[in-house]
Design a protein around this nucleic acid. Sequence first.
DNA 1: TTCATAGTTAAGTTCAAATTGAAGTGTCAA
DNA 2: TTGACACTTCAATTTGAACTTAACTATGAA
Lengths: 223, 223
Amino acid sequence: METQIGHIASLIGDPVRALILWTLLDDKAYTATELAISANTSPQNISMHLSKLVQADLLTVERQGRHAYYRFSKQEVAYAIEAIANLVPVEQQKKIVHSKHNAAIKHCRTCYDHLAGNMGVSIADSLLKQAVIIEKGKQFELTTKGAKWFLQLGIDTKELQQQRRIFLKPCLDWTERRYHIAGSLGASLLDTMLAADWVRRTKNSRAIVITAAGEKKMREYFR
Amino acid sequence: METQIGHIASLIGDPVRALILWTLLDDKAYTATELAISANTSPQNISMHLSKLVQADLLTVERQGRHAYYRFSKQEVAYAIEAIANLVPVEQQKKIVHSKHNAAIKHCRTCYDHLAGNMGVSIADSLLKQAVIIEKGKQFELTTKGAKWFLQLGIDTKELQQQRRIFLKPCLDWTERRYHIAGSLGASLLDTMLAADWVRRTKNSRAIVITAAGEKKMREYFR
DNA sequence: TTCATAGTTAAGTTCAAATTGAAGTGTCAA
DNA sequence: TTGACACTTCAATTTGAACTTAACTATGAA
């Protein structure tokens, strides 16, 4: 029995696999490529790791066409990971608080040209909280503080406002049923994040993956 | 955070450390040497592993004279290990049942010259169940089947019965408040187990440690 | 004091497991 | 049918962590 426990624990213990499991903690299915990006490793390597996790029945695969979707095989896997997370020494726990928020924004999609899904909604929330934007009636408005905030990211809001396209508007996300930022401002926010490699597009789908570097930066800017 | 989880999991994941943690699961304190014996490795090596576990705050040490007593630093450690144990595939779960019994007999002592404590009581129970011995009034009696059983272990019961010393009697263990096997039969059972390296005496105490090999054998003979 | 024991520390070796590189299978779209 | 893509497999390489050998500290008993 000790042997089996050791085996399971060592599976969770590898840095790459820990990242995989952490990513899957939102209980959604991810493709091998998505996981490779978020764990920052090669496709061959992620494939090797995933097959080990499947063999130990921590994960299951579902194959659809040329994609392989990986997810937890049972809830108990998440429980075990949370129990381990619970052992992380207190000095290092500050990071957990942010990470929990992170976990919530892990799954995200693009809505036409701007960020939607959990992530888009979370970003909109954060910007409202930081008074970068404010709600006016059924619209969003940029504050003067907000203009400076976007300038930090290299986004010139004055220039965007002169374009013909609608500058800023709330967009209702049908999965979240809450608002996120659309319009030219939302689009250039996404462009900036893609350019800075905070997030990457996956081919053939509207899914977006957050890179390791992006996670840090987003914590900084969106709390 | 993922990194921390990976770190903790890899600490649990090492075979030797998994054995240490499994041993400590009864929530008692063990010395380094006791743990070295039950994990079947060298003192230097166990010391290295223990210091890692202490540094990660999974264990705490208490030093008394020249002994170092190790125990879980908090209950959460046991929870995490149980959560991982919970992930062991069903085909391999049969072993758990035995192991739970095992955990129960892990802590044991000697009573004069025979096995007492949890282990002594468990062995007595097993021998009664297997009809190696039977209860007659307030005494134990060896069955003919039992004589053969002891012969398997290389113990000649006929010879023992001719000695002046009392052959077989129940002995009440004050910690367990239940009976175990004393008399010359109990003594030679312990001798045999020591000779076969199923268990070892620790110096300076009445404690007895079960070796890895002993665990297997005892499962075989005592179920 | 001397000797044995419990435990730790440090340097060197060994080995298993992650990674990389190269190549192959199957799917989808032009 | 061709090429791009998603994923996997296999051999070759690298590397990090466990283990070993050796030496040292501290406690306790003769």
